[in-house]
Amino acid sequence: MHTDVHKTEITRRSLLSLLGWGAFFTTLAISVPASIRFLFPRVLFEKPSTFKIGAPDDFRINGNSEHQVYETWKAEHSVWLVKEKNRIYAVHAKCTHLGCTPNWFPDEGVFKCPCHGSQFNRSGVNFAGPAPRPLDRLKISIGKDGMLVVDKSRVYTFNEFDKQGTYVEV
């Protein structure tokens, strides 16, 4: 038998071909996004994003500088607590260039990143190296029990530093 391919009428062969390829591409269209979704877990076994750091009065400035940087939570949570005269804020210990952990040099009053040499002053503002912006800050608030709570899931970049939640007045 001879089939004219230029005719648009539906033959048994063309219908089956359509069905076959249709099923193939439908399966593909469902399974590819599903496989990609598979790679994004619903639950993460990472450290909880909020943690208590103590009462506001626990933080005070030693000596006659205007800043005090607390390194207590750096090892576990990658956070520095900075106490200024009348505010406390949480600085994210993660270089804004490529995410290495900077180190705090109290004598110089400088955060230095070991990876590409970015440097930040005591309030986290970048002044040397490739870092594109100041160190980010994390949400800090006073909980119901009067204790300070840091929430790492909310990150503020430098143009949001005046927003509520970036610091606590004391």
């Binding site: 180190n103 070991p114 990876c115």
Partner: peptide
């Protein structure tokens, strides 16, 4: 140790 960057990394 995620808290301590190697220098240089």
């Amino acid at each position: 140790s995620p808290a301590r960057s190697e220098n240089p990394s």
